[in-house]
């Protein structure tokens, strides 16, 4: 592609690069693997850069997350279809990783993030996705609908069911769901 003017690169730096944590968070939850997430986010950013000329303002976050989500789905299907969802690759986790895990564990112990993430990781991907977009990214139903490519009614019912599942998993409200 022809080199974009510097002003475009500058605008991309200002509006899209700062959303990297959001992009990475969605990919981490959808793929449940940090290395996969990094590869996919890099691919998504390159795709975003190539299509940035066609982005006409609006919510940059929803726009970027749509690309990230699509990359997660297609990447998973084409690149590693046989991959087990929560496989743990011993070889890929050296001393550095152990140290990282230990550091993470300390942080996790301080909050109940570990319990929440475990509960979340057990849900089907459609449920994880809507929970991340709503409870972490705080998108509106309309934006979530755009990212997932579904009507708002679907967003509403899917989010309600995902929350119900998590409520039960976390033992909130002793009552049986009717």
């Amino acid at each position: 592609m022809a080199a974009a003017p510097d002003s475009v690169l500058e605008a991309f730096e200002r509006s899209i690069i700062p959303l990297l944590d959001d992009a990475y968070t969605l990919a981490r939850h959808l793929l449940r693997d940090e290395h996969d997430a990094q590869d996919v986010v890099q691919e998504a950013y390159l795709r975003a850069w190539r299509h940035y000329g066609g982005f006409r303002g609006g919510d940059a976050r929803a726009w970027l997350l749509t690309i990230v989500r699509n990359c997660c789905y297609t990447w998973r299907r084409s690149a590693r279809p046989e991959q087990v969802a929560v496989a743990y690759d011993d070889e890929a986790h050296g001393a550095d990783e152990d140290e990282q895990l230990a550091a993470d564990a300390r942080v996790l112990a301080e909050s109940d993030r570990a319990e929440l993430e475990l509960a979340l990781a057990q849900l089907p991907r459609e449920f994880r996705e809507v929970i991340v977009l709503r409870e972490i990214e705080r998108l509106s139903y309309q934006e979530i609908g755009r990212v997932m490519g579904t009507p708002i009614g679907t967003v509403m019912s899917r989010l309600a069911r995902a929350r119900k599942r998590l409520q039960q998993a976390l033992g909130i409200g002793a009552r049986e769901a009717s």
Partner: peptide, 27 residues
């Protein structure tokens, strides 16, 4: 209660610096 626990407890991941650098280099 469920929603408030999720919104308080589930925090964004911080993207690794290396990923940020890799993306800039690629672009």
């Amino acid at each position: 209660e469920t929603v408030s626990r999720l919104q308080e407890g589930l925090v964004p991941y911080r993207a690794p610096d290396v990923l940020r650098a890799r993306i800039r280099a690629a672009i």
